[in-house]
Design a protein around this nucleic acid. Structure first.
Length: 213
DNA sequence: GTGTGGATTATCT
DNA sequence: GATAATCCACACC
């Protein structure tokens, strides 16, 4: 497959705690172009992240933690940066978030889309309804299905050495990623008042693996 | 290519 | 009891 993000030198460096312990807007932008790696049955599945959304926690009417609500479902968002928050929605789909900041500041970044780059045959098998490769991970539910993410991965630590899911630095030049990063309103948050229009969705301009939105 | 509506159930009020 | 950080099939252009 042609790499549509750009050229660069491959690195396998994993992102550590400090990468995640930042505000969710900064993290949402810095996650673009990073490699999301899932280890499954001894195989490496990977997607390069092309679309994210920042959720700003207590003041953010669209966030699950709006107003400081703390429930069994959103507990992971209150944990330290670098944890994963997976939730079930529409009776059918899972969505995954990377928790940002530090403990007790419940902010996170929703991973919305990626370009599959490793383990394509397995990913295609996990996404039997996808007609084309660009439909494999072009949405938060699709991304979870493509990488076999569900409740079992909720609250896992992306920085743990034996984690089945982690983020690598990725092969791209950061200035190039930043130059192509654009923003817009978040998707699917219809009843969040003034928060609906805030430009907290970040994606790579003209990348075919971005969701419809 | 675009637009619309149904699926399906955990979670919260 | 209502809602949901969605996806897919199908209709139509």
């Amino acid at each position: 497959m042609v790499n549509t993000i750009g050229d660069g030198v491959m690195t396998m460096k994993r992102m550590g705690r400090a990468f995640f312990r930042r505000d969710s807007i900064t993290l949402a932008q810095d996650l673009l172009g990073r490699r999301l790696v899932r280890l499954l049955d001894g195989h490496r599945l990977a997607c390069d992240i092309v679309e994210t959304e920042a959720y700003l926690g207590i003041p953010d009417k669209a966030a699950h933690t709006f107003g400081g609500r703390r429930t069994a479902r959103n507990e992971a968002m209150y944990h330290d940066g670098g944890h994963l928050y997976v939730y079930f929605t529409y009776g059918m789909h899972f969505c995954m978030n990377v928790v940002a900041s530090t403990e007790d500041n419940p902010v996170a970044v929703l991973l919305r889309a990626g370009q599959p780059v490793e383990g394509l045959e397995i990913i295609r098998g996990l996404r039997p309804k996808a007609r084309k490769d660009k439909d494999l991970c072009s949405g938060p539910g699709k991304l979870c299905q493509a990488l076999a993410i569900d409740r079992q991965q909720n609250d896992l630590d992306l920085t743990s050495p034996d984690s089945v899911l982690f983020i690598e630095e990725g092969p791209y030049d950061r200035a190039s990623i930043e130059a192509r990063t654009v923003s817009g309103p978040r998707v699917g948050i219809g009843s969040a008042g003034e928060w609906v229009e805030k430009p907290l969705r970040f994606f790579l301009k003209d990348n075919p693996f971005v969701s419809r939105g």
